[in-house]
Each structure stands twice: as C-alpha cells, then as structure tokens.
Design a protein around this nucleic acid. Structure first.
Length: 993
RNA sequence: GCGCUUGUGGCGGAAUUGGUAGACGCGCCAGACUUAGGAUCUGGUAUCUCCGAUGUGCAGGUUCGAGUCCUGUCAGGCGCACCA
C-alpha cells in the first residue's frame, strides 16, 4: 500500500476541525504551557514557504509539550491594520476591511493545509471592534496615569524602577503643593514645570489639561516630524530623501506638530532591568539595551556671561571639566534665541534655516562639520573661564539637555569641530597624543586639571587620579557644591502614537472646547467610521475628516453627524488613528480570554496562563514590537491586569528564508539563451526565470517557451548533456525575482508532513537560509520508508488496509466500538501483538527517545530528524516487528508529522488522538555500552589498542594496559602519568618519559 | 566607529563537560531490478604524492589530546550610529 498523504492529510484535518481536537480550556489539574507566534499581517501576496517556518517550529514544540502532559495554549490571529490595505483602498476605492478579510481567508486556507494545532476558537483580529475595544481602553488608562519612581501618597505602593499611578493622585498633589518637591519622587515628565498650588488652582480647564499632558503616560505633545505639505501627511525618515518626499518629490520640512505620544521613556529602566529576567538571545537583548541606551553622567549648570541666564549640559565625562574650550547648543534649543547677540543674529538665523532644510536622515548620513558662533560666552564653574557658545547640528535637541560642553582633546566630534573652527584644544590625560586625533578612551592619568600655569579658580584638583576616579570625584563635587546633579540619561524616546491614516484604531477622544476628553469607558469601542475616500481631506485633515458621522453627543453618549457639532453638547472626535503597534502590543493577553466583553482578560484566565512561555518570531521586531509590547505589558502589570511583568519569557527568533533565484542567460540582441556552463565567451544578460519551471537548476525548456510570449521563439544552446542549466543566486523572496515558492504547491506535491519535516531539516530554526526545494526528496523518501516499515512488517497492519478505515479520535471516541477488522488490545493474539523487542531494537529506540526529548527542548529539530532517520534505518535492518516499538515511534513522530502519526496510531488500533498519548520515558539501561576503548596517549599521539568492559575501574585498566604485550611495547621507556576513565566512553592512559 | 553573531566537504548542515571531525540529507559515482526511469533497493563519496600523511577562515598559545578553551587577526551577516 502506498503512502497516500493526500488522503491521509485531508481526512485528519477534517476530523481535527469536526472534533475540535485542539481546543483548549483552562484546566487547573494540568500545568499550563503557552506557545505563541508573532501574528502575521495578512498581505495580498499570501504565504510563501518562509512564513510557516516559525509556526512549524512552535507547533512542534506545542505538540511535544502536550504529549508531555501540559495544557498547551497555541493560538493564532491577525495583525490586520496596516498600510498596504489602505494604499490599495486609495487606489481602488475598495474598503480596506474587505481586502483585509479576503487576505485573512487566503492565509487561513494556506495555514490549514499545513496541519497546525492552533485553537481557532481563540483567533483575534486587531481590526475587530471587540478586540480594539481593549486597545482603546488601554490607551484611556494610559491617559489617566502618570509615572513616578516612588508613590506620592504614603499608602501608595512602590515598585523598583517606578510605576504608573492614577493621575488623580498627581492632581491632589498639585492642589496641595503645586510642583514643590515633585522632583524628589521622580515623576516622569516632558519638561520641568514649576508652579505653586495657588497657581494650579488659578488655572482654567484648558491650562490644567495642558499641564497634565506634561505627566500623563499617554499624552499630547509637540514633536518634531517630517511634514510633507504636498502629501498632507507626516512621513517616516525613510520616506524622505534629499529633503523631498520619495513619492511625488514634494518638499519636506522639519515641523513641530501636536501628536499623541506614549511615555515609553519613563519605563526605560524597567525595560532594561527586565531583560535580566527573560530568556532571550544575547544579540536581541543587546539590541534592546543599545536602543534604550542608558548612560550615567552628570548635569552641570553653566552661567551665561553678562547675563542672569544659565543653562545645563549633560556629560558622561565629568573628569574633563578642565578641558572645556567651548560650548555647543542644538539648533532647535530654546536657548539659541537667548544667547544670540545682535551682531550674530543674521548669521545664526541663516544657519538655523540651513539646518531646518536638512532631514534627520541627511544629518545621519553625512556628518559635515557645520556651526555658527552665537556671540555669547558661558562661564566654566571649574575654571572661571569664558567659553564661547556655538550652535551646531551635531548636538541633538532630543538627547540630554540639548547642550554640551565641548572637550576637543577627548571627544572626536568636539575635536573635528575645534579643528574646523580653530578653537583651542587642552589635553587632560598624561601622555595622550592629540596632534592628529582626540584621545577618547576612558583610560589614563589625569593632568592639567587644573593647569599648573593658571591660578586655581576653585579648590579642587583631579591631577594624578585615573579617569574613572576623576569621574567619580567630579560627580561628588558637582553634587556637593550645588553645581548640578548626577543624572542617568536614556536614548529611548517616547513613541509617537498618532497617524494621519484611515485604517487603524480610532482614538476614543473628543475635543471639548479644545480640551482632549475621553469618551466614557462604557461607550467603548468607538468604531471606525465609514468614509467615502481614504485620502486626507482638502483642508489637510487626516482621512477620518471625510467621515460625515464623527461627532460625540455628550448627553446621549453616542456618535452623531458632524453637522450637529455645536461645541455645547456635541463635539468633534479625534481624527487621528493609532499606529500599527497599538493592536499588537497586548494581543497575547487577549488570546487567554478572547471573547470576554467585560475585561481585556479575566483574572482567572490571566492567573492560569500567566505569560507566554515560548514566543517565536523574527528578530526584526527587536526595537519595535518587542519594546512596545514589553512597555504596554508593564503598564498593564502596574494596573493589575497582567500578573506578569514580562510578556514573553523565552524568545526564539526564527531566521528568514531567503529566495533562491534562477537565471537564464540571453545572448545580447538575440533571443538565444545559453546554458550556464557554456556562457563564458558570449556577451550575455542574466534574466530572472521563474523557479517553478526549473528543477535542480535544469530549465524546463518547453515551460520556459510557454512562460512569456516573447520567449515562444527562444532558442537554446544546451550543455553537453543536452540540458539547459540555470545560474542561481540567493536573494530576498519576492514576486519580482520570480523566486517565490508557495507552500500550497509543496503540500500538493509532497504533503504537509513532508513540508513540515523539510522546513525543520533545513537547518537551525534561528538561522537564515535560502530555500532550496531540491533537498525535499530526502524527507519525503523518509516518510515513505517509515510508512512501509510500519505497514508492511506489522501483522496488525496488512497492506490491504485502506487508510480511510482508521477510526475517529477525540471526544467520545473511546465509547465507539472499534470498527472493521482491526483487533484491539486485550483481544490480540501473540502474533498480532508482534514480537517483543530485542535489545538492539530497544537501544535504537531509546537512543532516539533520549535525543529527541533533549533536542526539541533545545529547538534543535534538524538533529532530531537525523536521529529519527538513523533509528528507522536501524529498525528496518533489524526487521523489527514489535508493536511496542512501533507505537513509541509513532508518538515520537507526532510533533513533526501529525497527520501521518495520527493515521498510523489509528492503524495500530487506537481510538484516541495521538496527541493525547504519553511521551515515552527513556531508559538509560538500554543505552549502556558493553565495552570501552582504552586510549594510550604519548608524544602527542594517541592509539586505541584495547577494549574493556564498560564498568572497568581505573586500577584494572592500568593493570591490563601494562599486561597487554602490544601496549607494553608502546609503553617502553614511558611511565604511566595518569589514567582517566570517562564512564561509558573511554579510558585515557597518559604516558610520560 | 561601537556592540552582537557566524566561519567545518561540491551544497544544507552534525559533533554533551576538550576525547576516533564530517552524523543526517542533497548532489555525485558504481551496482541491482527494470521495456523505460526524474521509481525503488544496495554500496561508495573530505583532500593528497593514497600500506602513509594533511585537514574545521588565518597566525599563535594552553593540553597527552582543541572545531570546541585563551590571545591576536581576517572575512561575512545583523543591530546601533554625531547619544556628549
């Protein structure tokens, strides 16, 4: 009987759906295990073979854990909001929901063919109102919270690294004390505001609202963006080149705009600390650490000469205070206006204009040395010297205080600037050569601090200390002398949370006389309104401005037509929508309790499932989704919604599957194509050819002629074997390279089990690799051999049994009387049960059990499959007929090839689903070696002359080695230095002269 | 520039604490069975000057013994990048 994978897979996929085999529910009697994949954005192109890689890896793990007795949650859903659907809508007028749903259906169809154990009853879609209700809800909670390192009230709970508190507590504080003493609590804020309780009380509603925005976790803030007036929208940095938009070529300017933001920066320290508690790869942790960019330093205040004003700079090199020769402000700094003198006004304005014309991206790419003198000087509190204040784009407004003290001797950027503008350079480290470049290393002995040739300005010296000591000493001095404070800075910025787009979650916010006001929680979700076009409005408002029903009736608590806006009881609703990461930040919690209307997740479900034990997805999300999601979850943790601070305990980053493109070589100006191995000597143009008409790099010539009309008359120069051989290259898998391999095609040709096996056999899951269909035969052959082994040598499974005669599995199946002619346990004769396993068979089997159990846990799937192949070979050679061995083998196969395993399991007479079988325990007894080899090592060479029983002792081995004539010959002139016994492996006899 | 990571046959890739490098698969070679083979089965397949020696990017080191540990170096991949 043939291995009819088409029939088998179709049958079991149907059964699994009908019997809801993979539905899971909370079960307090079983330990939980939560496996999760990063949910996909359903693009119009459908899945290619690279997409399922991570799903297959986690599916195997999920099935393995279930076999081990865990209650496994393995859900799937869709990140449904995204730009492609909106762009398609703009072009065609089709509602993005329609295309998104079509794409989801296509994805589902493709996924279903691969045989995953997803519990589809728990599917989530970010664009479903029942889902985004909770995205909106979380946003409102962030709006209603502020972040503080310690509680403002004595009874408030504290948390290491700080936490979120209700904004009401801050309001109460303002009522009582204003901002007095707020610094000491460590309240996260945009800027350092100062007002008294009286001033607070005197504020009107709008002023109070604006003030609170300075503290809220979700807040409205002024942010620098790339604004493109021609397109009426904000652009990302990569959408801008040379100051114009990539699409349309419209000019782009840096503009401050009011945007919703999330105060992610407040959680910087907790995001950093949390990394120590989770099992992620070093590289991804490092990437996040880099992104968060913690740096310890000091803030020092500098007075402006001939003025009452002063400003603060941030430095990590407090030890270099005596080497400051100038100061630099960011062009965007508010101080620029204050320090610019009348004489320099024109020059400064010119410079600011020049900087404004440059995008962030341009500033990143070419680090030109530019700048302008402001005309003012700052007084160095350590030397009393007047340092000129410059303005330059190399200082960033968004980091530190937007102002620096320049120490050209020990900072390469300051050095370049000083050289360019001819500013003095004072070396501060003994022996440092600064004639060609600055000495940036934090090593050496400090000198010139203060310089010996000048009269000390203050009673403080760093001379003779190491750099590290000097940094500490200066920090201490700065603090004690009241010159500034010790400060930790983070590179992590607050996330801009609004987009001028249609296809996203609407904000549950309306504007009451200009004050952003939350729509009451009980009215959520606020559903995305219908619009007639998806472009910005003519007046430059976001696409939601096209909605005619988009006003909030405060009295009746409902959305009404815009025409009713009277700004008394009916107000306009926010026109921005949320960005992509809004819906993907807490979806893992929703899977625990996807249909709950009362809460994001119930307490019971959250406490049972806790957090994700294993998260699988691409590393490209390291600084996006994986930061936002951790932030979002930490906030929900503060709220008491999530019981775990970290959402994803263990993370595996699956590699990307690249495409393997094929080329044909057309001889220039002809329609003749020359085979790869003959192309030298011709002037050829390589042309991408569809990989689906190429097999093992050999072109199907007829299919090629039929591929495109212009190739119909193509002629070929074949190689000596009469074949047309194509060239190849590894590239990104994309339609335009004609190298997309579709999983459906593989499933059709080889079956889902072969696809699953092959994708895992290709190499380590974490590694990126090109897809190459050529090797798939080996995996398919293995399954065919396995099928043959299971069915042809087993008295239980005569070869005439049709696979469709298997019995159902799952609920209720146990009651079913087994049908047909298959005997069941207890009613079997000796012959039917098969022979009892031999020692060799058990050894082969248990070698596999041991390896597979350990390897799956380590995500080393390719080695597991290799071990499986070896085991099968061994058992086939041994002509194993043992039923016990076969049953175990089927369970071991089940995580990888669930369809085939299910079929075989039922052919073996079981009624239940193979996924509920117990994972086999491995027995060390069977693996014991009979003997070990003795290795005699001398002169750097080694020999293996003797074998001993496995349990030989050191003494016996030494005695035997000396007694053996062959060994004794080698040992002539040597003495035994030491004897090392590696149990079960070898005995090592080391000889010395 | 900084950080992380990977270098092993023709190819994808194996190799517990250092212990017979190249598992397993592809490809290739030979044979068997076949009217046929892009089916199946069996055997072989690192290199060379082939009874021996050399081999894990390169150069050193530690060790009886190194793909594995240490130092330096080169190359590829990824991330950050004027972060003071």
């Amino acid at each position: 009987m043939e291995y009819n994978f088409r029939e088998i897979e179709k049958k079991w996929q149907q059964r699994w759906v009908e019997e809801k085999t993979y539905r899971v529910a909370e079960d307090k009697n079983k330990p939980k295990f939560y496996v999760l994949n990063m949910f996909p954005y359903p693009s119009g192109a459908g899945l290619h073979v690279g997409h399922p890689l991570g799903y297959i890896a986690s599916d195997i793990y999920a099935r393995f854990k279930r076999l081990q007795g865990y209650n496994v949650l393995n859900p799937m859903g869709y990140d449904a909001y995204g730009l492609p659907a909106e762009q398609y809508a703009i072009q065609t007028g089709q509602h993005p929901e329609k295309t998104t749903f079509q794409n989801i259906d296509r994805y589902r169809e493709q996924l279903d063919k691969i045989g995953f154990c997803f519990d589809w009853d728990r599917e989530v879609r970010t664009c479903a109102p029942g889902y985004y209700k909770w995205t909106q809800w979380a946003f409102q909670k962030m709006f209603g919270s502020f972040f503080s390192k310690s509680p403002l009230t004595p009874e408030g709970e504290s948390y290491p690294g700080g936490r979120a508190y209700p904004i009401e507590e801050l309001v109460a504080y303002f009522e009582e004390k204003g901002t007095d003493g707020l610094d000491e609590y460590g309240v996260a804020q945009t800027e350092n505001l100062t007002f008294s309780a009286e001033e607070w009380k005197a504020m009107d509603e709008k002023q109070k609202s604006d003030t609170l925005m300075n503290y809220r976790i979700a807040f409205m803030g002024e942010t620098m963006v790339n604004w493109c007036a021609g397109l009426g929208t904000v652009l990302a940095n990569d959408e801008v080149v040379d100051g114009v938009s990539v699409r349309g070529g419209f000019p782009v300017e840096q503009k401050k705009m009011r945007q919703w933001c999330l105060r992610v920066s407040a959680y910087a320290q907790r995001l950093l600390d949390g990394l120590e508690t989770i099992e992620w790869s070093d590289s991804i942790k490092e990437t996040q650490k880099n992104w968060i960019g913690r740096s310890e330093g000091a803030e020092v205040e500098f007075k402006i000469a001939d003025s009452d004003e002063s400003f603060t700079i941030f430095t990590t090199r407090a030890d270099t205070m005596f080497g400051v020769t100038f100061m630099v402000l960011a062009p965007e700094s508010e101080l620029v206006e204050k320090v610019t003198t009348a004489e320099q006004k024109a020059a400064v304005e010119d410079y600011i204009k020049y900087v404004k014309g440059r995008t962030e991206r341009e500033r990143m790419i070419d680090h030109k040395v530019t700048g302008v003198f402001s005309g003012s000087y700052a007084i160095n509190p350590f030397t009393g010297e007047k340092n000129p204040i410059w303005i330059s784009e190399y200082v960033l407004a968004g980091y530190g205080t937007g102002a620096i003290m320049a120490v050209p001797a020990h900072d390469s950027r300051d050095y370049a600037f000083a050289k360019h503008f001819n500013l003095p350079i004072i070396p501060l480290i003994e022996g440092a050569d600064i004639s060609e470049e600055s000495y940036d290393a934090k090593e050496g002995i400090v000198t010139n601090s203060p310089r010996k040739d000048v009269k000390p300005y203050i009673d403080f010296s760093l001379n003779g200390l190491t750099v590290k000591e000097a940094i500490a000493a200066t920090k201490k001095y700065v603090k004690e002398a009241g010159l500034g404070r010790v400060k930790v800075n983070y590179r992590l910025r607050d996330a801009i949370f609004s987009r001028q787009r249609y296809w996203g979650e609407p904000f549950p916010v309306y504007y009451k006389n200009g004050i952003p006001t939350m729509i009451p929680e009980e009215c959520l979700p606020i559903e995305l309104p219908e619009v007639d076009k998806f472009l910005p409005t003519e007046t430059g408002e976001p696409p939601l401005g096209n909605a005619t029903v988009w006003a909030w009736d405060e009295l009746n608590k409902k959305i009404v037509e815009n025409s009713k806006i009277d700004n008394k009881t009916v107000f306009p609703i926010e026109l921005y929508t949320m960005p992509g990461f809004a819906g993907s930040s807490a979806y893992y919690l929703r899977y625990m309790d996807p249909h709950n209307d009362e809460a994001l997740v119930s307490k019971e479900a959250d406490e049972y499932w806790q957090n994700v034990d294993l998260y699988v997805g691409g590393s490209e999300h390291a600084t996006g989704h994986l930061i936002y999601s951790r932030f979002w979850n930490k906030f929900l943790f503060d709220l008491g919604v999530s019981c775990k601070e970290e959402p994803f305990q263990k993370l595996i980053n699956q590699g990307m599957i690249q495409g393997r493109s094929n080329f044909v070589y057309r001889i220039k100006d002809t329609n003749t194509f020359v085979s790869f191995d003959k192309k030298d000597g011709y002037d050829v143009t390589p042309i991408h050819v569809d990989v689906n008409i190429v097999s093992a790099d050999v072109l199907d010539v007829d299919a090629f002629k039929a591929w495109r009309p212009e190739y119909e008359t193509a002629e070929f120069i074949l190689n000596d074997e009469g074949k047309y051989v194509c060239g190849w290259a590894v590239e990104k898998m994309s339609k335009s390279m004609f190298n997309v391999v579709n999983p459906d095609m593989i499933v059709e040709k080889f079956g889902a089990d072969t696809l699953r096996l092959y994708e895992m056999f290709l190499g380590p899951v974490e590694q990126s690799k090109p897809w190459d269909t050529n090797g798939i035969d080996g995996c398919h052959r293995f399954l065919k051999k396995l099928w043959k082994f299971m069915t042809q040598t087993d008295p239980l499974c005569p070869s005439d049994i049709s696979p469709s005669m298997g019995r159902p599995c799952g609920e209720g199946a146990i009651e079913n009387k087994p049908n047909g002619n298959l005997p069941i346990e207890g009613e079997m004769s000796e012959g039917q049960r098969g022979s009892s396993p031999s020692k060799e068979e058990l050894k082969a089997l248990h070698t596999l059990i041991k390896k597979e159990t350990a390897d799956i846990e380590a995500f080393s799937y390719n080695t597991t499959i290799a071990a499986f192949m070896v085991c099968l070979n061994e058992l086939t050679k041994l002509k194993c007929t043992s039923r016990e061995v076969k049953e175990t083998l089927v369970i071991l196969l089940a995580p990888f090839c669930p369809h085939l395993a299910e079929e075989l399991w039922h052919l073996l007479g079981h009624d239940t689903c193979v996924c509920d079988a117990p994972w086999p325990a491995f027995n060390e007894e069977y693996l014991k070696e009979d003997s070990v080899k003795m290795m005699v090592a001398f002169n750097g060479k080694a020999r293996f002359p003797l074998e001993f029983p496995a349990d030989v002792t050191k003494e016996d081995a030494e005695k035997a080695a000396l007694a053996d004539p062959q060994s004794a010959k080698w040992m002539e002139g040597f003495t035994v230095a030491k004897v090392i016994v590696v149990p079960g492996k070898m005995i090592n006899v080391v000889l010395k002269k």
